[in-house]
């Protein structure tokens, strides 16, 4: 499974959204479950799935799903299909 699919599966589970709702351009304002506790769950899931512990600055900088890809890419993870 490539990193894109891993991330998608993770975010669907963290935010309890359906596949049809998913897009890397989804932002915090689009999802009811993206609140402070959702952010915690996302951080836990990212660490479990990608082995990267988000710093507080990184976590607070995430405004849309694409931002997660950008952060993980800087850590050497490839999201090229």
């Amino acid at each position: 499974m490539n990193n894109h699919q891993k991330l998608k599966d993770l975010l669907l589970d963290v935010f309890l959204i359906g596949e049809s709702e998913y897009s890397l351009e989804i932002s915090q304002e689009d999802i009811e479950t993206w609140d402070s506790m959702g952010l915690v769950a996302m951080a836990v899931g990212i660490e479990e799935t990608f082995g990267h512990h988000l710093t507080q600055e990184e976590a607070l900088s995430i405004r849309k799903f694409q931002d997660i890809v950008d952060i993980l890419s800087t850590k050497g993870m490839s999201f090229d299909d």
């Binding site: 993770l10 589970d13 963290v14 309890l16 506790m37 915690v40 769950a41 836990v44 899931g45 479990e48």
Partner: peptide, 14 residues
Amino acid sequence: RDQCTRTNVRLVRP
């Protein structure tokens, strides 16, 4: 969806 579940040490998935 419970706020307590969302701060579990391990992510809880469906």
